[in-house]
């Protein structure tokens, strides 16, 4: 029952995050979703990943979003066309119902055997190739962000005569 309560809470926060008008509020709802997902993870028996999700998902990512929203400024988001929204919703619900109908019947067996290995061993030893690749991904991401946010001389020129700039 607890799973259901927390799950409904997480879904509610997620809906709020994607429907709220102000971006800042959206980011905060996302943080709440993240916190509830972390709680669900804790209940499922993953205390370690819950802490990481709480600090990275609810903490770091929110900070990043707030930072980016500060840089870009709040912008009144125009509403999507209601027909489009309805259509998207119907398609999505149909897909989800289909997936749920297909996936659910087989037995989700409860775990009988306890943890085979501690997380640290699996992360740093067993799946160390994944860990190395993560390091490379961080390097790649850093290069990409540096490259994207570099100043380009042409742009500053165009900005003064920018016809489609800020109102």
């Amino acid at each position: 029952m607890v799973y259901a309560l927390i799950g409904v809470g997480a879904l509610g926060c997620a809906i709020a995050a994607v429907t709220t008008k102000r971006l800042l509020n959206s980011a905060i709802w996302l943080a709440l979703t993240s916190a509830l997902v972390a709680l669900e993870m804790y209940l499922l028996g993953g205390p370690f990943i819950a802490v990481i999700e709480l600090s990275v998902g609810a903490g770091l990512v929110t900070v990043l979003f707030v930072f980016a929203i500060n840089l870009t400024g709040e912008e009144s988001t125009p509403n999507a066309h209601p027909v489009l929204k309805g259509l998207a919703l119907v398609c999505l619900l149909a897909c989800l119902a289909l997936v749920a109908y297909w996936v659910l019947p087989p037995t989700l067996v409860s775990p009988s055997n306890p943890d085979t290995q501690p997380l640290a061993t699996i992360f740093w030893e067993g799946r160390r190739l994944d860990t190395w690749l993560q390091a490379l991904l961080i390097f790649t991401g850093a290069l990409t962000v540096l490259g994207l946010l570099r100043s380009t001389p042409q742009e500053t020129d165009q900005k003064e005569e920018n016809p489609d700039g800020l109102p």
Partner: peptide, 8 residues
């Protein structure tokens, strides 16, 4: 190749 528990 076996790197930890990941095989290639």
């Amino acid at each position: 190749l076996l790197v930890g528990s990941i095989s290639l």
